[in-house]
Measured scan of single mutants.
Amino acid sequence: RDEDEKEKIKEALKRGNEDKAKEIAKRANVSPEEYERLRKEAE
């Protein structure tokens, strides 16, 4: 379940949809550090 959320965040970031990614991260309680890591992976 947690991994699904992280995949959704990465997908949103790949599409350049940072607002959606942040919204998912907030809902999934993803830490800022984890969010940054996902953002780097998505580049």
Rank of each mutant, 00 (worst) to 15 (best):
E5L: 15
A28D: 05
E23Y: 00
E41F: 04
K40E: 15
K22W: 06
E36C: 05
E23D: 10
E5Q: 11
N29C: 05
V30F: 07
A28P: 01
A28H: 11
K10T: 05
S31E: 08
K26N: 10
K14D: 05
I9F: 02
E7A: 13
L13G: 02
K20G: 09
D4E: 13
E3Y: 13
E33S: 06
K10Q: 00
Y35G: 02
E23P: 01
K26P: 02
E23C: 07
K20Y: 14
A12E: 13
L13D: 03
D4I: 12
E36A: 03
E23R: 07
I9Y: 01
R27T: 09
A21I: 01
Y35P: 00
P32A: 13
A12F: 06
K22Q: 12
E33P: 06
D4C: 10
A21G: 03
K40S: 12
N17D: 15
L13Q: 03
K26L: 09
L38A: 03
G16Y: 02
E7I: 14
K8N: 09
D2E: 14
N17K: 07
K26F: 04
A42E: 04
K40N: 11
G16C: 05
I24F: 00
L13M: 09
D19I: 12
E43P: 04
R37A: 10
N29M: 09
R15G: 15
R15H: 15
Y35A: 03
N17G: 05
E3A: 13
K6M: 14
A21D: 01
E11G: 07
Y35D: 03
L13W: 00
A12T: 04
L13I: 14
K8D: 08
Y35N: 03
R27Y: 01
E34I: 03
K8E: 11
K6V: 11
A12C: 05
P32I: 12
E36D: 11
A21K: 00
A28V: 08
I24R: 03
E11S: 07
E36N: 04
D4V: 11
K20A: 14
D19N: 11
E34N: 01
I24S: 03
E11W: 00
N17Y: 12
N29I: 05
D2G: 12
A21L: 02
V30R: 00
E23M: 04
L13Y: 00
K14S: 09
S31Y: 03
V30H: 01
K22R: 14
G16P: 02
K26G: 08
E3C: 10
K22G: 06
E41C: 05
E3H: 13
I24A: 04
E23T: 07
K26I: 12
A42N: 06
P32R: 10
K6L: 15
A21R: 00
K20L: 15
K10A: 01
K10R: 06
A25D: 01
N17Q: 14
K40Y: 08
K10V: 06
R1A: 15
A25R: 03
A21C: 04
E33R: 03
E43F: 13
D4F: 10
E3P: 11
K8A: 15
G16K: 05
E34W: 02
I9N: 03
E41G: 05
E23I: 08
S31I: 04
G16E: 04
R1L: 15
R39E: 09
A28Q: 08
D4W: 12
K14Y: 03
E5K: 08
S31L: 08
I24V: 06
E36W: 00
R15M: 15
E43A: 12
E7W: 09
K8R: 11
R39L: 11
A25L: 01
E7G: 10
K20F: 13
A12R: 02
Y35I: 06
V30L: 13
S31Q: 07
P32Y: 11
A28T: 08
E3T: 14
R39D: 04
S31M: 06
R39C: 07
L38S: 01
R37Q: 13
K26E: 13
L38W: 02
E7M: 13
R15L: 14
L13A: 03
R1H: 15
E33I: 05
K40W: 09
E18P: 08
N17M: 13
A25N: 02
E36S: 00
Y35L: 11
Y35Q: 03
E7V: 12
K6C: 06
E18S: 08
E41R: 05
E3S: 12
E3F: 12
P32L: 12
E11Y: 00
A21H: 01
E18Q: 09
V30I: 15
K10E: 03
E36Y: 00
K10H: 02
D2T: 13
E33A: 06
L38T: 02
D19M: 11
K40H: 13
R1V: 15
E18L: 10
R39M: 10
K6N: 09
Y35H: 02
E34S: 01
K14G: 08
D19Q: 14
P32Q: 11
L13C: 04
L13T: 03
L13E: 03
R27E: 11
K26A: 14
E41Y: 03
A25F: 00
N29H: 10
A25Y: 00
S31G: 12
R15K: 14
E36F: 00
L38D: 02
A25M: 05
V30C: 06
E33K: 04
I9C: 04
R1Y: 15
P32H: 11
I24M: 05
G16S: 04
E5A: 15
E11I: 06
D19P: 09
A25E: 02
K10D: 03
A28N: 12
L13K: 02
L38Y: 03
K10C: 06
R15Q: 15
K22A: 09
S31R: 05
R1I: 15
K40M: 12
Y35T: 03
R15I: 12
L13H: 04
R27N: 11
K8Y: 06
E7R: 13
K14L: 10
K8W: 07
E43W: 11
D19T: 12
E41P: 01
K26V: 12
E5D: 13
K40P: 02
D2Q: 14
E3R: 13
S31P: 10
K14A: 11
K20N: 08
R15N: 15
R39Y: 07
G16Q: 05
E34M: 01
E7T: 13
E34Q: 03
K6Q: 08
K22I: 12
K20E: 15
I24N: 02
I24L: 07
S31T: 12
E5V: 15
A42Y: 07
E11M: 04
K20Q: 14
E5F: 15
K10L: 10
N29R: 09
V30S: 02
I24G: 02
K22C: 05
E34Y: 00
V30D: 01
K8L: 11
K20T: 10
G16I: 01
A28R: 06
A25T: 03
K22L: 13
P32W: 11
R15S: 15
A42M: 10
R39H: 09
S31W: 04
R1Q: 14
K40I: 12
P32M: 11
A21M: 01
R1S: 15
R27F: 01
K22S: 07
D19A: 14
E11L: 04
E34H: 00
P32S: 11
E43L: 13
D4L: 12
D19S: 11
V30Q: 02
K8H: 08
L13S: 03
K14C: 07
Y35E: 04
E43H: 10
K10G: 00
N29S: 09
D2F: 15
E34A: 02
D19H: 11
L13R: 02
S31V: 05
R37K: 12
A12I: 04
R1M: 14
V30W: 04
L38Q: 01
R39G: 06
A42V: 14
K40G: 10
E43Y: 12
K26R: 13
A21T: 01
K22Y: 05
E36V: 00
E18V: 13
A42T: 07
A12Q: 11
A21W: 01
E33D: 12
K6P: 06
N17A: 11
R15C: 08
I24P: 01
R1N: 15
K8C: 07
A25W: 00
D2V: 15
K20H: 11
D4N: 12
E34C: 04
S31F: 04
L13N: 03
A12W: 05
E34F: 00
N29A: 08
A25S: 06
R39S: 10
R37S: 10
R39T: 09
E43Q: 12
D4A: 11
E41I: 08
A42K: 02
A28W: 00
D2L: 15
D19E: 14
R15P: 03
D2M: 14
E3M: 13
G16H: 07
E18I: 14
A28F: 05
K14Q: 09
K6W: 15
I9H: 01
V30A: 03
E33V: 04
E7Q: 14
K14P: 03
E7F: 09
E36K: 00
K26H: 10
R37V: 07
K40Q: 14
E33M: 04
N29K: 10
K8V: 06
E33T: 05
R27I: 10
R39I: 10
A28M: 07
E34T: 00
